[in-house]
Amino acid sequence: MAPVELTWGAATATGQREDNQDRFLAEPPIFAVADGMGGHAGGAAAAEVVVQALKALTGSKTTTVQRIRLALQRADGEIRAFKGPGLGGAGTTVAGVALVDEGNGPQWAVFHVGDSRVYRWHDGQLEQISTDHSVVQELIDAGYISDEIAATHPQRHIITRALGVGARNEADIALLPVLPGDRLLACSDGLTGELGDERIAELVAVAGRPADLAEGLVAAADTTGARDNSTVVLVTVEPQRP
């Protein structure tokens, strides 16, 4: 496998909420965000379970799609087994990227459950790689509403898939090439609920360290009033050196 040089950063903010139920992981080869829900203690605990399950895959240059699936399945089962005050009905979304080697050289495995998102900055364009598991996304897919209407739809925060609650659903996982200069962004809906894709693109396009860009994204969400926790993890594939 050819060497891949990565730089990364992460940031999180509580916003107007009483506490922060988001959790993140930025440790090669895994970069992910989890957005807990279902009560203060339960939501935070559910997000932490997912992050710890993925953290078990770190410590090596790559992982595999199968290991990611198994880690998320274990986390799902552990959350469903929660017992105690404030833990009932807890769940979490998750979105992230992982450097994998499936036998064809380095690739990104993009994984997600729920409405936390993954974006890619490539050749001067921002592209949403994940597709929300949400009521409004189903309405968009069916042609009932537009993206513009979805941004203010009263059901925009209702998700159709999560870890720990509802039906047992697999994460969506897609493979992408690892390309020098690309930036991959994982974020909770606290960011995308405050900033449109155009504004996110402007902030991701700025030259600088991923850690500074991550802080800038969260700060921009905060300045709009940040009704929710906002969390981002940003990883850059550095250009290959001659």
Rank of each mutant, 00 (worst) to 15 (best):
E202M: 09
A207H: 10
R183V: 01
R199H: 11
V204H: 01
R199S: 08
L185I: 06
R199W: 02
A201Y: 03
R161P: 02
R199M: 13
P180K: 12
I158E: 09
L179E: 15
L195C: 03
L163G: 04
L179V: 15
L163M: 06
A174H: 11
R199V: 15
D197T: 14
L163K: 01
P177Y: 08
E170H: 13
L185E: 02
C187T: 12
A214H: 04
G193P: 09
C187F: 07
D172Y: 06
R183D: 01
R183Y: 01
L195D: 03
R183T: 04
E202G: 06
P180A: 14
D182N: 12
L176A: 15
A205M: 04
T160I: 05
T192I: 07
L203C: 11
E170W: 08
R183I: 03
E170C: 07
E198M: 10
V206N: 00
I158S: 00
D189R: 10
V178D: 05
L195W: 00
A205K: 10
L163Y: 05
A201V: 01
G193R: 08
A171S: 12
A207D: 15
T160D: 09
G208Y: 02
T160H: 05
R168W: 09
G208V: 01
G208H: 03
N169E: 15
A214P: 05
A214Y: 04
D197C: 08
R209A: 15
A211P: 00
A171I: 12
R209V: 05
D172V: 14
L195S: 04
H157D: 13
E194I: 08
A221R: 05
I173V: 13
L176M: 15
L191K: 07
A207T: 13
T160N: 08
C187D: 06
G164K: 09
G208Q: 02
R199P: 00
A221E: 06
C187A: 14
G164S: 12
A221C: 09
L184H: 13
A167W: 00
A220H: 10
E194Q: 15
S188M: 11
P177M: 08
P180Y: 08
E170A: 15
G181K: 03
